[in-house]
């Protein structure tokens, strides 16, 4: 279980980092989304992994930690809003620069007027 979760986080984060380093805005947005998924799963597992246990004291012998669940909920909401904002910004960048390159120019026309 621990190994599986660790592997999932590792794959999510490494894919996210790779995509973040791309030059187009769409892969960067995807990368940031994957990165935030990885971070959320990581945060979720920080209270210790328990299977089939409720997060309420008194309902179970060995309740799971409720705090990471509350934290991850906040993190998901914030991450979602930021991603939405970034998508709008990426669209606006494309509208202003006529390219989806993160630097606003493709590199080929660097000699020209920017």
């Amino acid at each position: 279980m621990e190994l599986l979760v660790a592997l999932i986080i590792g794959v999510l984060v490494s894919t996210g980092v790779y995509l973040c380093l791309r030059a187009r805005t769409f892969p960067v947005v995807m990368g940031l989304t994957l990165l935030s998924y990885g971070v959320n799963v990581f945060l979720f597992s920080m209270g210790g992994l328990k299977i089939n246990e409720v997060a309420v004291v008194g309902m179970s012998e060995n309740p799971t930690d409720p705090l990471p669940q509350a934290l991850v909920l906040t993190a998901i909401v914030i991450g979602f809003a930021m991603t939405a904002f970034l998508v709008v910004l990426a669209l606006r960048s494309q509208g202003e620069h006529y390219t989806d390159h993160v630097d606003g120019s493709d590199g080929e026309d660097q000699g020209g007027a920017q």
Binding site: L32, M82, G104
Partner: peptide
């Protein structure tokens, strides 16, 4: 502004992670 803003936002999102 949009170009500088895009860099600023992406960097800070990674920072938040």
């Amino acid at each position: 502004r949009v170009k500088a803003g895009l860099h600023y936002v992406v960097l800070n999102l990674v920072g938040s992670g």
